[in-house]
Amino acid sequence: MTVLPKIEAFAADLTAIRQDIHAHPELGFEEVRTAGIVAEKLRAYGVDEVHEGLGGTGVVGIIKGTGGGNRRVGLRADMDALPIVEDSGVPYASTNPGRMHACGHDGHTTMLLGAARYLAETRDFDGTVVLIFQPAEEGLGGARRMLEEGLFEKFPCDEIYGMHNDPNSEPGKVNVTPGPAMAGAAFFDITVKGVGSHAAMPHQSRDPIVIGTALVQQMQSVVSRNTPPTKPIVLSVTKFNAGSAYNVVPDAATIAGTIRYFHQDVIEMAEARMRELCAGMASAYGIEIEVDIRNVFDVLMNDPELTTAYVEAAASVVGAENARESTEQASGSEDFADMLKVVPGAYCRVGHAGSVPLHNPGFVLDDGILPIGASIYARIVETRLPKVGS
């Protein structure tokens, strides 16, 4: 492994930044402190331009290379935390109750800051780097808001790159999947409007719990009996809420969850079937069922040519034996997909030590990944914006 020496020299600084951000996690569109740290660091590193407030709390930095080239490469990291009570036991654990960096966004932000410091010091490239620190990746539409507020009109990019830490892979292993790499996602909320009654006289009710539980079971047939086996889909009910007393049949129940998919025809089929099932159940029981299904993430599509370029750049850091193009698709989702719909690019996964999965209260990011990720970001810039004559 060949982490860039300049980055290795300030690896301890990256660890300190990451652990400070980790101790002060902020949810989407609330990343005021984090964004302030990012802007302060970028200015201290000598970044040419620092723009704050795009997409609410987003930050964009501009670094110009020593040549006069016109090509522009974007690098993106996300900054938000999750509404999780931390149980990691680390000395720098969250000091904000009910908030935790359980997905590694503190690491993503720090790796991009490390790349920014290196690139601002060396400027060994011909063109411009656009550093994008995005808010609200965790289902709140931070990428879409930045795009709506003119991200690429104000800061054009010819190509763009992102990355995610991966505790499920070996430390230092880098994987990039060409084409559809991560699932699109929809969230759904269903309200079963029944008729309440005394629990001792349930015949006077139209019990939304009985109806709702039957509906949850029926929705599993969307995957098992309506979807072609060659087109993967995940339909998960993650919330079922009803009732407030032992002796009351409630008048309503709410059901919520997510659908993950890779094919547009599959998500359209799933949405149609869910609506049909709800309508049928409502008719059968003589009640009303409201359905809200909304797209939250698009399918993340890596450009095949830029995937190869990203793997080659990563190989110069972690070794050719540790960087590869993968056929594995992830059922998780990532709103970097929205940026890739506008600008071609690629998204990689970087392995690190640890056995606790993402989005878990006990998750711990391995700080050894920080100089690796920063070096990969720096190398993709230097390889895609080579100096004339180099």
Rank of each mutant, 00 (worst) to 15 (best):
K154M: 05
F155V: 00
P156G: 03
P156I: 10
D158P: 09
E159C: 15
E159Q: 15
G162R: 06
G162A: 14
H164C: 07
N165E: 01
D166I: 03
D166N: 15
P167E: 10
P167G: 06
S169G: 07
S169T: 12
E170T: 12
E170Y: 13
P171G: 09
P171M: 09
P171Y: 10
P171D: 06
K173V: 15
V174R: 10
N175W: 13
N175S: 15
N175I: 14
V176I: 15
V176G: 02
V176D: 02
T177F: 01
T177Y: 02
T177E: 01
T177A: 08
P178R: 13
P178D: 11
G179Y: 11
G179Q: 09
G179E: 09
A181H: 08
A181R: 09
A183C: 07
G184E: 07
G184C: 10
G184Y: 07
A185W: 00
F187Y: 12
F188D: 05
F188T: 10
F188M: 07
D189Q: 13
D189C: 04
I190G: 10
T191E: 04
V192C: 11
K193C: 09
K193I: 12
K193P: 00
G194P: 06
G194A: 10
G194N: 05
G194M: 07
V195H: 02
V195D: 00
G196V: 12
G196Q: 05
S197W: 08
S197F: 09
H198V: 07
H198W: 02
H198T: 06
A199V: 09
M201D: 02
H203F: 11
P208I: 13
P208V: 13
V210A: 04
V210T: 14
V210L: 12
G212V: 01
G212D: 02
G212E: 02
A214D: 13
L215V: 05
V216L: 03
Q217E: 12
Q217Y: 07
Q217V: 14
Q217P: 00
Q218S: 15
M219L: 15
M219A: 02
Q220A: 06
Q220T: 08
S221Y: 08
V222H: 04
V222D: 03
V223I: 15
V223F: 04
V223A: 06
S224C: 07
N226P: 03
N226R: 15
P228L: 08
P228E: 03
P229Y: 06
P229A: 10
T230Q: 09
